[in-house]
Amino acid sequence: PEDEKKAKEALKRANGDEDKAKEILRKLGVDPDRAEELLRRLR
């Protein structure tokens, strides 16, 4: 869904750096736990 698209985009923008991607997602208003879960799934 929408969050998943955001997560993929964030990872791309962060050049695969998960911590940076998490930060980006947090700024986009995605719940930190949700962000973590999404990134884990994309790994």
Rank of each mutant, 00 (worst) to 15 (best):
P1E: 15
P1Q: 14
P1D: 15
P1R: 13
P1S: 15
E2M: 10
E2P: 09
E2L: 10
E2N: 11
E2A: 11
D3Y: 08
D3L: 14
D3F: 09
D3S: 05
D3W: 15
D3Q: 07
E4F: 15
E4A: 09
E4K: 07
K5T: 10
K5H: 12
K6G: 04
K6E: 07
K6S: 09
K6T: 11
K6V: 13
K6A: 13
A7G: 04
A7W: 04
A7N: 01
A7K: 01
A7Q: 02
K8G: 05
K8A: 12
K8S: 08
K8M: 14
K8F: 12
E9V: 09
E9I: 12
E9A: 12
A10E: 02
A10G: 01
A10I: 05
A10R: 01
A10M: 02
L11V: 03
L11T: 01
L11K: 02
L11R: 02
L11S: 01
K12I: 13
K12D: 10
K12T: 09
K12L: 14
R13G: 05
R13L: 15
R13A: 15
R13E: 14
A14S: 08
A14L: 02
A14N: 02
A14E: 02
A14D: 00
A14W: 03
N15D: 09
N15W: 09
N15E: 08
N15K: 12
N15I: 04
N15Y: 09
G16Q: 04
G16P: 01
G16T: 02
G16C: 10
G16L: 03
G16V: 01
G16R: 03
D17G: 02
D17H: 06
D17S: 06
D17V: 05
D17Q: 05
D17P: 01
D17K: 05
D17R: 05
D17F: 04
D17T: 02
D17E: 04
E18W: 15
E18Y: 15
E18G: 06
E18S: 08
D19M: 13
D19E: 15
D19V: 15
D19W: 11
D19F: 12
D19N: 13
K20A: 12
K20L: 14
K20H: 08
K20Q: 11
A21I: 03
A21V: 03
A21L: 04
K22F: 14
K22Y: 13
K22P: 00
K22M: 14
K22S: 05
E23W: 05
E23H: 06
E23I: 09
E23F: 04
E23L: 08
I24W: 07
I24C: 05
I24P: 00
I24K: 02
I24M: 09
I24Q: 03
L25D: 00
L25M: 06
L25Y: 01
L25C: 03
R26L: 15
R26C: 07
R26E: 12
K27L: 15
K27Q: 15
K27S: 14
K27I: 11
K27D: 12
K27H: 12
K27N: 13
L28E: 09
L28H: 05
L28V: 05
L28W: 15
G29H: 03
V30E: 02
V30A: 02
V30G: 01
V30I: 15
D31Q: 10
D31H: 12
D31A: 13
D31G: 09
D31F: 05
D31M: 09
D31K: 08
P32S: 11
P32C: 07
D33P: 05
D33H: 12
D33N: 11
D33L: 13
R34P: 02
R34L: 13
R34D: 08
R34N: 06
R34E: 08
A35C: 06
A35L: 07
E36F: 05
E36I: 07
E36W: 06
E36V: 07
E37K: 07
E37F: 06
E37A: 09
L38T: 03
L38Y: 04
L38K: 00
L38I: 10
L39G: 00
L39H: 00
L39I: 14
R40Y: 05
R40T: 06
R40P: 01
R41V: 05
R41P: 02
R41M: 12
R41H: 09
R41I: 08
L42A: 05
L42W: 05
L42R: 03
L42N: 03
L42P: 02
R43Y: 06
R43W: 05
R43T: 07
R43E: 05
R43K: 10
R43P: 02
